[in-house]
């Protein structure tokens, strides 16, 4: 786990920092202020009557946390969970949700990086949930808009 998760780190230090993760070959970023925990993949209890991208619920140290598969949410074919698969537990508006990603990459500071607004995408479903695109070193990071990512109920 990166040392940024030290609880002594104040929130100020976290703003502008992003946790990046991979889905397929694309790099996505998520604001570090939202991230509570990163855990390895574990068994998920399926909850019927929910959309497919809601994988179910897990027991995170006694509290029940729903699990959302980013691949399914973005209409990317699902793949088996493996050793690299991670659940990133995020807290948005006091709602805790674990999102499933292929693998977690690193924590980057995007303040000084070139950030551009979104170009046209073919994949409308993905674009809806993105806030901006940044260039870090020599690759692009797609910044996830967590609020939008979780808010909609029309994903059925």
């Amino acid at each position: 786990m990166p040392e940024e998760f030290n609880p002594a780190t104040t929130e100020d230090d976290l703003t502008g920092r992003f946790l990046t993760f991979y889905i397929d070959n694309a790099v996505y970023g998520i604001e570090l202020t939202h991230v509570i925990d990163i855990i390895s993949a574990q068994e998920v209890t399926n909850v019927p009557s929910t959309p497919a991208y809601v994988k179910g619920i897990i027991n995170l140290r006694g509290s029940i946390v729903p699990v959302i598969d980013v691949r399914l949410k973005f209409n990317i074919p699902e793949r088996e969970y493996d050793d690299h698969t991670c659940f990133i537990v995020v807290d948005i508006d006091d709602m805790q949700v674990a999102i499933v990603v292929d693998t977690v990459d690193e924590v980057v500071n995007l303040d000084n990086q070139v950030t551009a607004s979104l170009p046209e995408f073919n994949n409308v479903n993905t674009k809806e949930y993105l806030r901006s695109i940044s260039k870090v070193d020599n690759h692009l990071v797609l910044n996830l808009d967590c609020e939008k990512f979780l808010e909609d109920g029309n994903g059925f």
Binding site: V47, P48, S49, M95
Partner: peptide
Amino acid sequence: SFPPFLNRYNLKDA
């Protein structure tokens, strides 16, 4: 109780 995120799916009715 279910986490608040799941409230939108009306699990009670299910």
